[in-house]
Computed example of a mutant assay.
Amino acid sequence: MIITNKFNLPAPFVSLAQRDYIFEPNEYRVTSLLKGVRETILERRHHEKIERDVSDMVWLLFGTAVHAVLERHEEGEHELKEERIKIPFGNYILSGQFDLYNDKTKIVTDYKTASVWKIIFGDFEDWRRQLLIYCYMLRKIGFDAQGAQVVAFLKDHSKRDAKIKADYPPYPVQTVKFTFTDADFAECEEWLTAKFKEIAAAEKLPDDELPICTPEERFNSGDKFAVLRKGRKTALRVLDSMEEAKQWMSENGGDEIQVRPGEDKKCIDYCAACEFCNYYREKVVNGNGGSKAV
């Protein structure tokens, strides 16, 4: 990856960002599997050509710095810290590194930086999946991992909002806990099997024929349906489904419904391989998925 420094940020930022990861043949990290297969494959194929500026990596670097501080913690008698596990999975190697495992409590702990909105919305499925895989891997090498927790550092926490909003996280650090069952581990193995099957098929395809990331993987905000009236510049009402829009128009009036495609936020702001993706070029940059009236 090519790291630039357009705003002349201090050298330590650049040094931290330049810590490169070498992709090993047939080895996939857990964090890569949590992405869309297209994004994962494109990142591997074009890693040496992908360019990112240090300014776009500030929160990633902040998270790395938090981990660096916590790494200084001495391991307890029953603890494993910052261990990378590699296990065979079919023709592949599954690689994962957890922050802390306590063999007495049977709990994996992972430290993350996050927005308060993740806590407010309870949007933890990606965290749960990642930690479930770590526990699955630990069990494969002889540990009886049974649950996990994320200690989340909320980078945008507001003391003022914590005092006046009932649903706002009261503190800038939150712990989110997960308990896993035998059924969860069986489902995890099925998920991994399906994911590696997808990867095996995708590795044989050219870039433009890779499976398009799902709306969830693209962080798509969802289509909106605007009820319009001729001669009026703004919508009478914007709703979340065509059915709701039709119902509202039948009760309140209007001349047409405009479909406003949701934004692919991952593609726009967070995908390092987007410039090598034909979906991004055609749908996001050129706007071929623009609004249309029905």
Rank of each mutant, 00 (worst) to 15 (best):
I2G: 11
I2S: 10
I3H: 02
T4Y: 01
S15A: 14
Q18G: 10
R19H: 12
Y21W: 10
I22M: 07
I22W: 02
F23S: 09
E24R: 09
R29A: 14
R29T: 12
R29C: 11
V30Q: 00
V30L: 05
V30M: 01
L33R: 06
K35G: 09
E39Q: 15
E43A: 13
R44D: 00
H46Q: 13
I50R: 11
E51W: 01
D53H: 10
D53P: 11
M57D: 13
W59H: 15
V66E: 05
H67V: 00
V69A: 12
R72G: 10
H73P: 06
H78D: 13
L80Q: 11
K81P: 04
F89C: 06
G90A: 06
N91K: 15
Q97M: 14
Y101L: 05
N102T: 02
D103S: 15
K104E: 12
T109Y: 04
S115C: 03
V116S: 13
I119W: 07
I120L: 10
D123G: 06
L132F: 02
Y136Q: 05
Y136F: 15
L138G: 06
A148W: 03
V150W: 03
V150A: 15
V151Q: 13
A152T: 04
H157V: 06
H157R: 09
K159Q: 15
K165L: 14
A166P: 04
A166M: 04
D167H: 03
D167R: 09
P169I: 02
V173W: 03
T181R: 10
E189T: 07
E189P: 05
T193R: 11
F196W: 01
E198Y: 07
A200M: 05
A202V: 02
K204I: 06
K204E: 11
L205W: 04
L205A: 08
L205Q: 13
P206S: 02
D207M: 09
D208N: 12
P211G: 10
P211V: 11
P211Y: 08
C213H: 03
T214I: 08
E216V: 12
R218K: 14
F219Y: 09
N220Y: 05
N220R: 04
D223L: 00
F225G: 07
F225Y: 15
R232K: 14
T234K: 11
L236Y: 05
V238H: 01
M249Q: 11
E251A: 06
N252P: 06
Q258D: 09
K266V: 04
K266A: 11
D269Y: 10
F276A: 07
N278S: 15
N278E: 12
G287W: 01
G289W: 00
G290Q: 00
S291D: 15
K292R: 15
